[in-house]
């Protein structure tokens, strides 16, 4: 991917992320988030992560965000006038977060140990990022995690059903 394309994608992503956080209406926030997810999916494509990109769209944007929107509609939320926390907290949060960002960039991102972009420039092996490649790793190296995750999903389903059930009088 060439840097220009990356720059455009990056800017759009940041803009929509800010939209999630700063927009007052929850519906608009949700739609901003969907936008961000789509842009991320595009980025994944450019990084040769084809399955992941597809899953991003189908699962994340297609299922999870839909669920969010369902709940927002269900609760019939309007834009609440007190959307943000008090000024003091706002200030503290932004300050801390910026400090965190600066620190992260300075100490974890910049160091030369990350190496040059040689890896990025090089060609990945054949079938990199394809379904077969992911499946191969998934069912051999991460088999246990896979099984545990399926149990986790079961638990989540049961939990969600129990929690949201209306108590029978």
């Amino acid at each position: 991917m060439n840097p220009l394309l990356f720059g455009i994608l990056a800017l759009l992503m940041i803009a929509s992320a800010l939209g999630v956080v700063l927009l007052h209406s929850p519906v608009r926030s949700a739609l901003s988030l969907v936008m961000t997810l789509f842009l991320l999916a595009v980025t994944f494509l450019f990084l040769d992560a084809y399955l992941v990109a597809a899953l991003q769209v189908v699962v994340y944007a297609g299922a999870i965000m839909v669920l969010f929107l369902f709940v927002i509609m269900l609760l019939n939320l309007q834009a609440d006038p007190q959307g943000m926390a008090k000024v003091g907290v706002r200030f503290a949060a932004v300050l801390l977060a910026s400090l965190f960002l600066l620190a992260a960039v300075r100490f974890f991102v910049a160091p030369a140990a990350l190496g040059s972009g040689t890896g990025m420039g090089g060609t990945p092996p054949a079938g990199f990022g394809s379904v077969e490649a992911v499946a191969e790793r998934l069912f051999t190296h991460s088999l246990f995690a896979f099984e545990v995750t399926s149990v986790l999903l079961l638990v989540a389903i049961i939990g969600a059903v129990v929690l949201a059930k209306r108590k029978l009088v």
């Binding site: 992320a17 999630v20 959307g83 943000m84 926390a85 949060a93 910026s98 960002l101 991102v109």
Partner: peptide
């Protein structure tokens, strides 16, 4: 990192639980 920070700020300053 920038996206992460934006998300963190969002957690800290929004009052609407869904947001």
């Amino acid at each position: 990192a920038i996206l992460f920070t934006i998300g963190a700020v969002g957690v800290l300053i929004r009052r609407n639980v869904i947001v």
